[in-house]
Amino acid sequence: MKKSDICVVAFMYGVCALFFSMTLKLKPAAQIYPKFVISLLAVLTTLYVIKMVMDAKKYGVQNGFDEVFAGFQAQQFFKVVVMILAFVVMLKVFGFYIAAAVFMLITLYLLKVPKLHNIIATVVIIAIVYFAFTEFLGVRLPKGMFF
């Protein structure tokens, strides 16, 4: 048994509990199918718990997290995640093209991409999006509050 699997089991039971509580607010006829699939997940998760307990008895308890997150570059990962979230927020404020350019330039800088490659990649990706989505497909991308 791996300790990391406890997270999986907790997540699955959490989903079951959340959806079950919402199901109870539906009218009775509409409750049947959601209850069926929630029960399915709960039963499968319980079977997995039983398997985990049996494995623990047989092979002992292993950490598992060191395997799941082997070679995890925390700083780099969270920098990218923050930049992605900032990009989505910037989309609403500044519009797609400005937000995308800022996101690309800063993220590539944080990932230590040389300046010239950084600028070329930014220009290329924005040109691709412009010609493929705006010109070819006619998609109107977010304009932002100020533009």
Partner: peptide, 23 residues
């Protein structure tokens, strides 16, 4: 991969927005 990371992100955002033009 350093170049792929932001490029793919931008395409993911554009792609998901383009279907229904919905944030």
């Amino acid at each position: 991969d350093a170049i792929l990371i932001p490029c793919v992100t931008v395409l993911c955002v554009v792609g998901s927005f383009a279907i229904r033009k919905n944030f």
